[in-house]
Structure formats: structure tokens, C-alpha cells
């Protein structure tokens, strides 16, 4: 038992665990919107775009969360603006987010002292979480989950069928903006755990597992959130014992779970298939 609880003796580990679990929960819940609305690429791109924002706020000496949050929100709105103006949506994402990422890289390459932070930004460094980070992630988790709760109906309708939602009185343009804001907030707050390159897996994989297990939007959110939190917990824990990068550990573990669930559900479906037997009455 002592052996299992040992890592929790360290403050940094307990903090990392709390931040990891909350991030997993949040990414899992939001991931259901992102995957069902086919927005995975936007989320992936935005996390890269935020690197540009993070570097700029560092250079200008601003608060990381506020600066990067505004930057990410701006990038999301810019993508929305470009889409529908004869620019294909995925191309718009490519343009905006890689430009922003490149800006980050350009600035970093001229400031030599960055290399350590740069790696953390790319791949995450959950063990370097400060008490302030813990508070921010807690605040963001409460804030975003309450938004999901309050706006569950309009967001579901908006997500499923935007046009009919508009006819039925859902303020769809406000929902677009609200969701862009939620997405930027989510990515900025959880970037520390997995970094810009790996964060998308925390968003996409638990939601995809939940889709395999449920046909219900609401249930999917619960399954995806719980799975996200549990996988983060186990992943960070394993990373301590195997001494591997925590981000990679979480991603590999969630991929493993996805693979197992995929095979299991395929197997179940095959077993439930029933072919009607041929009775003489059918043949006549």
C-alpha cells in the first residue's frame, strides 16, 4: 500500500494528479461536442495556434492564461470568418493555426533561452504544475461544466442541426461564439498536461470510446468525462513508475483502451447478429 501511495507524498505529484484528472474530465466532456460536430481538426489546429499566443504573451510579459486565451479565441473567430468566404473550412484552419504556430516558432528561435519551456509547451509537463495553475484549472473546470449544464439544450440542438435550431429560436451565432470561447478556454487551461501536440487525443479519444458505447448524447458526455478523468489518473500514475513522459503515457493508455473497446464492441455486435433460420414455411 505504501508503495502505491508513495508518489502522493510529493506535493508536485498530487497537484499534477488533480490537474490531470480535471483536464481529462473537461476534455472528455467537451470532446463529445467537438467530435460530433466534426470539429476535431479545429481543436487540433487551435492548440497549435495557442503556442503562438503563449510565446507572444511571454515575450510581452503578459499573463499566460489571459493572453493565450484571447489569442486562441481570436484564432477561432478568424477561422469562422474565413470559412464561408470561398475558403474551405479545413483550409481556413490550416492557414490560421499554422501561421500562428510558425509565429511562435520564429520568436522562440530568436530567443535562445526558451528551449526548456518550448519542450513543455509541445509535449506537456504536468509535473511542473504550479499552485496557481491548479487554481486556474479548477476554476475553468467549474466554469465550463456549468456552461455545458446551463446551455445543454441549445448547444445540443446547435450541434445536431444548426439551421432548424435557428428557426426554433436558438441564438446560433451566439452559440458559435460561446463555443469558440469555451474551446479556447479549454485548450489554454489544459495545455500544461499534454502540450499542443498531444492535447487533441484527450479531446478525441474518450469521446470516441463513448460513441462506441452509447447512442445517447447525454450519456456519452458522462462516459467520456469519467473515462477521460480515469485514464488521466492511470496514465500519470503509470508515468511515475515507468519513468516516461506523462503526456505520452496518457495518450498511449487511452489509445489502448480505445482499441480494447473497439474490438469488444465489434465482437458483441457479431454475437448479437441473428440470421433467421430457414423453416419450411419460408421456402414454400
Amino acid at each position: 500500500m505504501d508503495f502505491l501511495l508513495k508518489p502522493f507524498q510529493y506535493d508536485f505529484f498530487s497537484r499534477a494528479m488533480m490537474v490531470g484528472v480535471m483536464s481529462g474530465l473537461l476534455c472528455g466532456v467537451m470532446g463529445v461536442y467537438i467530435t460530433t460536430r466534426r470539429m476535431s481538426y479545429i481543436a487540433h489546429g487551435l492548440s497549435h495556434a495557442i503556442l503562438g499566443g503563449a510565446v507572444m504573451t511571454y515575450v510581452l510579459g503578459l499573463n499566460f492564461y489571459i493572453g493565450s486565451g484571447i489569442w486562441g479565441f481570436g484564432a477561432a473567430l478568424l477561422i469562422q470568418y474565413l470559412t464561408g468566404r470561398k475558403v474551405y473550412s479545413d483550409a481556413a484552419i490550416g492557414i490560421v493555426t499554422t501561421a500562428s504556430f510558425a509565429l511562435g516558432v520564429a520568436v522562440i528561435s530568436s530567443y535562445r533561452k526558451f528551449s526548456q519551456n518550448f519542450e513543455a509547451a509541445l509535449f506537456g509537463n504536468v509535473l511542473g504544475v504550479s499552485p496557481t495553475d491548479l487554481w486556474v484549472v479548477t476554476g475553468v473546470t467549474i466554469f465550463l461544466l456549468s456552461l455545458v449544464f446551463v446551455f445543454y439544450r441549445p448547444l445540443l440542438f446547435w450541434c445536431f442541426d444548426r439551421e432548424v435550431a435557428q428557426v426554433q429560436g436558438v441564438p446560433v451565432f451566439a452559440m458559435d461564439t460561446l463555443f469558440a470561447l469555451m474551446l479556447a478556454t479549454l485548450l489554454v487551461a489544459t495545455l500544461q498536461v499534454l502540450g499542443v501536440t498531444l492535447i487533441i487525443s484527450a479531446v478525441v479519444i474518450p469521446a470516441s470510446i463513448a460513441r462506441l458505447l452509447s447512442n445517447h448524447f447525454g450519456y456519452m458526455m458522462v462516459i467520456s468525462g469519467v473515462l477521460g478523468a480515469a485514464i488521466s489518473f492511470a496514465g500519470i500514475y503509470l508515468s511515475y513508475y515507468f519513468d516516461i513522459a506523462s503526456g505520452a503515457s496518457v495518450v498511449l493508455l487511452s489509445t489502448l483502451v480505445f482499441g480494447i473497446v473497439l474490438i469488444w464492441t465489434q465482437f458483441q455486435r457479431r454475437r448479437q447478429r441473428h440470421i433467421p433460420s430457414l423453416h419450411p414455411s419460408h421456402l414454400s
Binding site: 449544464f149 447512442n215 456519452m220
Partner: peptide, 21 residues
């Protein structure tokens, strides 16, 4: 999309009930 027939119909009640999941 992961919704049931009943949930789809319920979406049409949006004007009557907006802010409760």
C-alpha cells in the same frame, strides 16, 4: 449523430424550455 427519436422531437420544444438539461 448520437440522439434518439424522442430526443430529436424534444428539440422542437426549445422555445418552451431553454435552460434546463
Amino acid at each position: 449523430f448520437p440522439v434518439t427519436a424522442e430526443e430529436v422531437v424534444m428539440m422542437g420544444r426549445y422555445r418552451h424550455r431553454q435552460f434546463s438539461p
